[in-house]
Each structure stands twice: as C-alpha cells, then as structure tokens.
Write a protein that binds this DNA or RNA. Structure first.
Length: 268
DNA sequence: TTGTGTTTTATTGCCTCC
DNA sequence: GGAGGCAATAAAACACAA
C-alpha cells in the first residue's frame, strides 16, 4: 500500500507531494509534485487522509519540477568542492540547512558528479588532442629532417667518388675494405638505412622517448644481436633545447669524427 | 510567440559492497 | 537483502534566435 505525504519547502515557498513509502527521501519515491499554483487556491494538506479525500486530487497533475534557488545551489557547490561524496550525516545536515529533502540533496550530488565527470572527460580529450597535434607536428619535422639528410648524404657520397671511370666501376662491384675510414663506412650504412623500406614512421613510447622501428630498438636485433645499440641519444626538436636544427644523428657523426668507439653495423 | 537546443531535477534499473 | 553509486533516460525549466 502506497502512502502520500506533503511537505513544505521553505526555500521555494511551495508545497511538495511525495507518493511512496512515507519517506519523501526514500529511494523508491515515485513522484514529486510542486503545488505552488494549487496551494494558492486551496488549503495546505497535512495528512495522506486529507489528500486522498480531495476530489480534485487528479487536477493538479501533471507534477512540476522546481529548480533550486541560487543560494541553495551555491551552498551545494561549496559542499561539493569540499567533498564530492555524501555521507548520510552530511546529507541530513545539508538537507536541513537548505530546507530540502535528503533525497534531493543526494540526487543533486549524483547529478553534479555526473556533470563533473563529463567535464573531466572533455578536459582529458583536449589534453590528448593537444599532445597528438604536437607529436604530429614533431613527426613532420622528423620527416623533413630525414629528407634533408638523405640529400646531404647523397651529395657527400658523390663528392667522394673517384674520378677515373675505370676505377668507378670497380668501386661499385667491390665492398669497402674493412680498414676503410669509419666516416666512410658510416656514410654508407646510414644512407642505406635511410633508404630502406617505405615506412618512415616514428614510434614514441610512453615516456616520450622515440622508439625506432616497431620495437624498442631501431636495430634488427634478432639478425644482428651483437650490433644493438641504445638510441637514447636521438633527440626531438621540441625537447632538444638547442638551435632546433640539430640532426638526429649528430651524436653518431660527432663520435665518428672524434674516432670514438662506436658500434658498426653493416646492412646488406 | 514559437520552435529548438541546453541545463537541471528526478526516476529507473542494474551493480557492488557490507 | 538493504543502501548507495552510476548510467541512461524522461521531462520540466530555461535560453535564445527567428
């Protein structure tokens, strides 16, 4: 058997009707009715019996919603800022203070949490999009730098070719001597590597460090287990902090020029 | 004034926890 | 099993352009 109760909302100066188990704040309350208009025309009901005796009970349907006053919202917002979850004691205190039903306070917090979550999702999306745009821009720079280096290497290689035509053919067919200068070996290696394959993708891991190839290393370590080198020295133009035109391979070239020991890998 | 989109209040159903 | 949380949704209230 369902019961009904009417209570006075002092903040809205309206009478509210709850149909339910007797507690307007209970979970199963099925309807809330604003009786502002009707209360002007008839006396205030205080008991379910009086209510059900009214022959015009049905006339006040459909029920209306009443918005909270700015003062109520302000206090609720302040409370939400302190703690977005509502323990029963605080709920009762707030309800009493605001002249609302505890259920209304609970509903307000629930809806407020949902709104906060949506905003948070929007913020997260904006942040991710910003990161993505930044990475994309960086990636484009890498591609341009790559093309530039390729052209540069090609020019340098051509300049290093012997001038006699007979020797030129010999150079093409024979591999470089093992005691060739490191800078020459490096030129060949880097050029070959730069021109292999069509996927110029740059992979970046969680830490923002650029990973080469699909794994953590650019080098095909299963084929050349002894030739795997860390690639931490590769920089992006963004985090470089330098002049912004630093080559990604500048560390390697510098090492070669200084005759520092480096790992040599020859691609076939 | 009216149509339409947005915000707010409230309900319902499902899930988890104690 | 009851209490409380959340997602989805309804519907009233509100804002605003045409």
């Amino acid at each position: 058997m369902e019961s009904a109760r009417i209570f006075f909302d002092p903040t809205c100066h309206t009478n509210m009707l709850f149909l339910g188990n007797g507690d307007p704040g209970f979970r199963g309350a099925r309807s809330v009715m604003n009786m502002e208009e009707s209360s002007k025309r008839r006396p205030f009901f205080s008991t379910p019996e009086e209510l059900y005796d009214e022959e015009y009970f049905d006339e006040q349907l459909p029920e209306k919603k009443r918005r909270l006053t700015p003062e109520q919202v302000q206090l609720l917002e302040k409370s939400f800022e302190e703690e977005n979850k509502l323990e029963p004691e605080r709920k009762s205190q707030l309800a009493k203070k605001l002249g609302l039903q505890p259920r209304q306070v609970a509903v307000w917090f629930q809806n407020r949490r949902a709104r906060w979550k949506n905003k948070q999702l929007e913020r997260d999306y904006d942040q991710l999009k910003s990161s993505y745009d930044s990475l994309l821009s960086n990636y484009d720079s890498v591609l341009k730098e790559n093309d530039k280096l390729k052209a540069e290497l090609l020019t340098l290689t051509e300049k290093m070719q012997p001038k006699e035509p007979s020797e030129e053919t010999d150079q093409k067919s024979e591999p470089l001597p093992t005691d060739a200068p490191p800078c020459l070996q490096l030129t060949v290696k880097v050029e070959d590597r730069l021109s292999t394959g069509s996927d110029d993708s740059v992979v970046v891991d969680d830490d923002g460090r650029q990973l080469l190839d699909s794994g953590d290393s650019y080098f095909p370590d299963n084929e050349y287990p002894d030739c795997v080198a860390a690639v931490d020295s590769i920089h992006s133009e963004v985090d470089d902090g330098g002049d912004g035109r630093r080559s990604y391979f500048s560390d390697v070239f510098a090492a070669a020029e200084q005759q520092e020991p480096i790992v040599w890998c020859i691609w076939s």
